[in-house]
Each structure stands twice: as C-alpha cells, then as structure tokens.
Amino acid sequence: MTKSKKYYFMCLNAIASSFAVVVAHTITNPAQLGITKIGPTFYVILCIVLGIVFSFGVPIFFMQSGANILNYRERYDTKTFFIKRIHKVVIPFIIWSIFGFFFIYGKSDFSLTLKSFITTFLSGSIVGPYWFFYNIIGFYLCVPFISLIIKYASRNIIKYTILVLLVVNTGIPIINILTKSQSLFSTSFPFIGPYAQYFIAGWYFAHNDISRRTHKQIYILGIIMLFFEIIATIYFSFYVKQLPGLNYPGGIVKTFFDIAMLPSFCVMCALFLIFKQTEPKLQKSDSFRKYLAQGAGLTFGIYLLHPFIITWLLVPFNNYLTTLPLLIKMVIDPIFVYLLSGVITFLIRKMKYLRWLMP
C-alpha cells in the first residue's frame, strides 16, 4: 500500500474500530441503561438508532483489514505474515481471554478449571465483544489463498466473488427467516464466512479507482439502507412479531441491521468511501496526522480493554451521575470508557515488559 492511503486508514482506526465499538457496547442496550420496559418510547428508540448508526465499528475494521492484508505478498512471505498476526493479534487475544476468565467469568460459580476455560473460550462466552477475534483469525487463516485471487484475478472475478458472498451471506439468511426453513445452500459454499464480503470489498475499494457516478450511487444506496434499517427495526420490533430470529434482548429485532446483512453492508461501503475521499485533506495537515497516528495506535488496546472497564468501573462511575438526566449519561458513559481505555493502553505500551500485551 502506498503512503498516500494510510491516513484515512488511521482515521478509520481511531474512530470506527474503537470509539464506535465503545458506544455500541455502552449505550445501545436499553437494559444496560436501566430501562426494563421495552416499547416504542424515546429512549428505547434512541438506543435502536444509536445501535444502528454505531454498528460500523467492526465491519469497517474488517474492510480495513482486507485492504491492508490481502496484498501482503508484496511485502513479505506467508510465514512472516502468520508470525506477525500471531504476535499482534492471537497472543494478546488469548492472554486477555485468560485474564477475563479469571476476573470476569470467574466471578460466577463456574469452576475455574482448564476444561471450563477451554469450553468457554471455544464458545466465545468469556468476554462477549471478543467474538470479533474468532472471525478475524478465521480470515487470517484464509488469507494465503484469498490473496492469490486478489493478486491474479481480474476485477470482474473479484466483483463476482463479492457478489457470491453477498448472496450466500445476506440473501439466503433472509429467505430462511421469511420461509421459516433452512436452505442447504447456506452451508454448501466452502470458505465463506458471514463477514467475508467486508474483507474483499475493503481491498477492492481501497485499491481501485471508483468513478464519481459510482460513488454517488453507493452514497445514495447507503443512505436509503440506513433509513431502511432504522424504520424496519422499529416496525418489526414493536408492531409486527412474526420474525423468528436475530432478536436482541427485550425482543428488538436485529434482522435488518445485523452487520452480516445486505443493508448494513451497503452502509459500510458508503462510509468506507467517505473516509477514503478525505485522504487529500488529511495529507495536508502534518500536526493532525501526528495525533491521528498516535490515536490509531491505541485502537487495538481500547478494544481489548473496554469490556473490562464496562464490567468493573462503569457502574461505580455512574453512581456519581445519578442526579443527571439519562440523556447526559448516555453522552458521558462512552466518552469515559473510551478515554480511560485509551489512557491505560497508552501507559501499558510505555512499559517495557508489558507493551507486548498492547501491540
């Protein structure tokens, strides 16, 4: 990747992959805010809207990962690729999962044994937000052969690959829900995960010139799909109760804004291109790029730490905010979690023997 394309990636890191994720995990679940009655009230609808608007954190990171990694053969061999991924992602993920097992999951009566750790680790139930790592590691394992498609295939073949992924990952699940059936086609395609389209689309948009007309079409489609997600989620959550799957706690229907679905994919593509369009402006400000690089460097640590901050410190912190309106607390909470996670990450990265925990 050329140097000119790195700055908007840093911006995506600092905003999408950290702050959006923190917002999604702090103020988008009504029950987490103390709202026990789920209905079409102001705060419940606000939680839904915020959940949809800030759902871009992980998908944008997937797109950025694809853009950065799928051409790794231009920089180093496959062995080096895996060594880098193991040190930067796999080892910290395992270490922080062990930490979470003892200090979060271990607070329950569950027996703290090796067997119980393996069971909970494989099921992804130790630290909820860490579900992302299972998907990204699966992507890493597929990168050596996907990178060959990227390197040698034509643009049409790459677009065809994205189309197949969209049909399998976003079309068939909707048909299954509407028909209350389970199509065998959903499991008949090898090497297709529910988020694979993000990785390849991220590479495609980052490394190919998109015409101005196509930009506008994607932006318009993204806006339409964003409103569709919001309206359909509210409508089917509170006024139509026939959908059987993809529900949030309290009966909020997630079907239309789940990040594996087509509407979300359209929104993410539009957002990715918006950030890409800011690249010329980002290159003009040396001071901004300096702070942007520092902020982007804290992204991975914030993702690792924020579940622990939410579990241990958010409730005690909110005890000091009991007199404030809920709307103000919804503004303060994600900022508190984000900044504290960032500060702790920054301090750990300064420690000689611990910095490897926050690569």
Results as ranks from 00 to 15, higher is better:
Asp209Phe: 08
Tyr219Gln: 12
Tyr303Trp: 07
Tyr8Met: 02
Glu74Gly: 09
Ile344Phe: 08
Lys216His: 07
Gln197Ser: 07
Phe199Val: 07
Lys290Trp: 05
Ala67Val: 15
Pro129Ile: 04
Gly250Arg: 09
Leu298Phe: 02
Tyr152Thr: 13
Asn319Cys: 03
Pro40Gly: 13
His215Leu: 13
Val44Met: 09
Leu112Thr: 04
Tyr198Ile: 05
Val343Asn: 02
Phe236Ala: 12
Ile149Phe: 12
Gly251Asp: 11
Gly128Asn: 15
Ile302Phe: 01
Phe19Ala: 00
Arg75Trp: 11
Leu354Gln: 08
Tyr134Arg: 09
Ile104Pro: 03
Pro173Thr: 06
Ile35Phe: 08
Ala260Phe: 02
Thr26Asp: 00
Thr2Phe: 07
Ile157Leu: 13
Leu340Cys: 09
Ile174Gln: 03
Leu165Val: 02
Val337Asn: 01
Val89Met: 14
Phe272Gly: 01
Val143Pro: 10
Phe346Lys: 06
Trp131Ala: 07
Val331Ala: 04
Arg349Tyr: 10
Gly297Phe: 02
Phe81Ser: 14
Arg75Pro: 14
Phe189Cys: 09
Phe317Asn: 06
Val21Phe: 00
Gly66Val: 14
Leu114Val: 12
Ala14Asn: 00
Gly34Lys: 15
Phe228Cys: 08
Ala24Lys: 02
Pro280His: 07
Leu262Cys: 04
Pro307Leu: 02
Ser17Gln: 01
Ile35Met: 11
Cys142Gln: 15
Phe288Val: 04
Gln283Asn: 07
Val337Glu: 03
Phe236Lys: 09
Met225Lys: 03
Phe236Trp: 15
Leu327Arg: 00
Asn176Leu: 04
Ile52Thr: 06
Ile150Val: 13
Ile86Ser: 02
Leu321Ser: 02
Tyr204Trp: 07
Pro40Ile: 15
Tyr291Thr: 00
Ala67Met: 14
Tyr204Phe: 14
Leu357Asp: 09
Phe61Cys: 12
Ile98Arg: 01
Leu326Gln: 07
Gly57Phe: 10
Trp203Met: 03
Ile332Cys: 07
Thr113Arg: 04
Leu262Asp: 05
Leu321Tyr: 03
Leu339His: 01
Ile224Arg: 11
Ala232Asp: 05
Ile332Thr: 06
Lys79Gln: 10
Ser264Lys: 08
Lys107Gln: 14
Ile157His: 08
Glu74His: 15
Arg289His: 00
Val253Pro: 05
Gln294Tyr: 09
Ala20Ile: 00
Phe228Met: 04
Asn13Val: 03
Arg75Gly: 13
Val127Met: 08
Val90Trp: 13
Leu114Gln: 07
Cys47Thr: 10
Phe132Gln: 04
Lys107His: 06
Ile137Glu: 11
Ala260Glu: 03
Phe265Lys: 00
Phe81Ile: 10
Thr278Ala: 07
Arg213Ser: 15
Ala270Gln: 06
Glu229Trp: 06
Lys6Arg: 00
Thr311Gln: 08
Ile158Cys: 02
Phe191Trp: 14
Ala201Met: 13
Gly202Val: 12
Leu178Gln: 00
Lys151Leu: 08
Phe236Cys: 11
Pro194Glu: 03
Asp109Leu: 14
Ala206Phe: 10
Asn68Gln: 12
Leu163Met: 11
Lys281Ser: 00
Ile162Ala: 06
Phe336Ile: 05
Ile60Gln: 15
Tyr105Leu: 10
Thr2Val: 08
Thr41Leu: 06
Gln197Thr: 01
Pro59Glu: 11
Phe336Lys: 05
His306Met: 08
Leu262Tyr: 12
His25Glu: 01
